[in-house]
Nucleic acid binder design. Structure first.
Lengths: 360, 360
DNA sequence: CACCGCATCTAATACGTATGAACGGAGAAA
DNA sequence: TTTCTCCGTTCATACGTATTAGATGCGGTG
């Protein structure tokens, strides 16, 4: 017992003693729910008064230990969030998540401690800290599959922002419709007369990348173009993208337009800017280029690249709505939603040059 | 009870059964700490093996229930945070708070539900929800004094970002040193030859405003200038600031420089931009002007106003460090820290016009 | 008068972990 | 042989809450 130390937090037992009732009664009154109307109004008032006087606040740990709910939603990011460039990318998601969390009357628990641990597993401390919350929104490109599997296995309610697949069963997610957006981008380029369209994809084989590739293939098919596998190139690091590469592709393959997949940071935009600054390649005069997504919120308008943008805040809101919905559902059947992206015209694509011939 | 329901998470009891020991032994092995070397090596290995096979993960709720603490820190904002302009202002604080929270091995609880409630009292729900966390960082200009008093009264550990005073006792805070920063700004203007310096202060009488005024007075005193009370004007809404006002002050009072207190949004910058866009007043040709602080992170460089900026991320970090320190201290003596601001030279002040005479 | 229904409330227990006290066995000292 | 010590392990309990199965009292009914 702390002799003169910080006062112990009041518990339901304290309230019970003060109000002259039992702890069980206090619990019934406080948690409010179904059985709460079984309580006489006078008793109820007495309990509430005592609680207010003592400044009572329920103990989250105890509540969730018991299996009850504590009106907390968690947010966990698989990426380290401290690099500021990425952070700018994730901020809109956070905004949407927090806004909808508030609207639903929940509080938001940011799992920072887990995030900062050296190995980025949810189970880092030997414990699954996520379970402090009633449910959790997950985020991030580099997912630990084994963690996802474990979560599904444990039947813990969560929603992923971004489409994700998992070996054992279906998971709930709110994804961006990269397939449709990429398909539309190909269609637009085709409308402008482009026939040789290069697709620069990320080297890792994640769902977003697969979706873009599928959209690319579908777009070509819809335009009646054959897929030239040489025009699908893996790009390990966007910073590698150079004027030499572009000139090579134009010369060797007759490429007139490029679709490139951005990373969450601004390496791609930096590389593009570097190319155009020296006038070594001009977009769209030498070659059209469009971004299959939207990188980190570039600061002072480097250039209005043609791209599509995902409604990140909206996705955050939608994910929270889905999660709350999931919490209310005893069956916990998984849900999947894809949200359309917005086409941003920009100024980096233009008509295909007349001289560019059929070079298939 | 789930009849065929999903597999229950393994507990220490499960491990104990499998390894043929007691739950207590498992706990001793798992938690590892001091008493762990009391265990025979063979037993230890058996337990660890069983734990690994079952995929054990400790239950955080149970663990923190036992310990009394959650390892949760709260963050509460007195302002509604949804207007995006303000949000940009508060974001750096959040960044710092979250970073240091993570570094300290805590998780961060954003009190969104309280924030969104119509009356913005901590005690909105009848109970003090802040107590979900072990301690809390508070933020925001428009504080509810009665809430602060109650918190102090309840002996709940918290740290305010920004200097705050309270009737009953001292509270802990991490503030910006507005006094010194404003004093330095006055000194700089004096060095440039200015003698008639107007101070536009917020109309509300909050600590940050009082500190700036004190710095203004101290700065004048240090420069050997008398305080002309007419040169201290209250400004209800920064949007009210107009070219007519400025011209009037120049003409009637011989003002050559203005110090103005910004709000957390961008109304002030908008008003300034509106003035200069029409060339109705030129800064610093017609009049020097400096901002006593830094408004919302203006998007695409409207102009590099002379100002000082507060290290918001650092303040956030410092607040968390202080809070954790507070948690470890049984006495819970209050702590106060003021962090110096950074002078941003900018281009909106210049030498006082020669013609400007002593007009006191 | 026994019985029932009803409205309120309480006793008891479970959740999973940590930990101080207790315990049993083996050897050593008496 | 008895007593003591020490080591490795277990017992028992507490943490704060939610929940279910009763307990209690009371008015009405047959």
């Amino acid at each position: 017992m702390p002799p003169q130390g910080r006062r112990r937090r009041p518990t339901q037992v304290d309230i019970a003693r003060r109000a002259g009732v039992s702890q069980a009664t206090v619990s019934l009154v406080i948690s409010g729910g179904a059985a709460s109307d079984q309580i006489a109004e006078s008793t109820r008032q007495a309990v509430l008064a005592a609680a207010a006087e003592l400044g009572y606040a329920a103990n989250v740990a105890a509540r969730s230990l018991k299996g009850g709910r504590n009106r907390l939603l968690g947010l966990y990011t698989f990426e380290p969030v401290f690099p500021t460039d990425r952070r700018d990318f994730y901020y809109p998601f956070l905004l949407g998540v927090e806004e909808e969390t508030a609207a639903q009357g929940y509080d938001l628990l940011l799992f920072s401690s887990v995030t900062s641990s050296p190995d980025r597993s949810i189970y880092a401390g030997g414990a699954n800290r996520l379970k402090l919350a009633d449910g959790c929104v997950l985020l991030g490109r580099n997912v630990r599959r084994e963690d996802l599997n474990a979560l599904v296995h444990e039947d813990f309610p969560f929603v992923f922002i971004g489409r994700r697949e998992v070996d054992e069963g279906e998971i709930s997610y709110v994804g961006a419709d990269y397939v449709a957006a990429t398909r539309a981008m190909v269609a637009e380029l085709h409308r402008l007369g482009h026939r040789r369209i290069l697709y620069l994809r990320a080297i890792e084989d994640t769902e977003p990348t697969r979706d873009r590739e599928q959209g690319y293939r579908e777009g070509l098919a819809a335009a009646g173009l054959e897929v030239d596998e040489r025009l699908i190139q893996g790009l390990a690091d966007p910073a590698d993208l150079s004027a030499e590469h572009v000139r090579h592709w134009i010369g060797a393959y007759g490429v007139t337009a490029i679709l490139v997949e951005p990373t969450e940071d601004n390496r791609l935009v930096d590389a593009l800017t570097a190319m155009t600054d020296g006038e070594r390649v001009r977009f769209p005069e030498d070659c059209s280029i469009a971004l299959l997504g939207e990188p980190s919120s570039w600061t002072p308008e480097p250039r209005d690249w043609t791209r599509f943008s995902l409604p990140r805040a909206q996705m955050g809101r939608e994910a929270v709505r889905m999660l709350v919905d999931l919490l209310g559902d005893a069956q916990s059947t998984s849900r999947q939603v894809s949200i359309p992206c917005t086409f941003v015209p920009g100024d980096s694509i233009g008509p295909a040059p007349r001289t560019g011939g059929a070079n298939a």
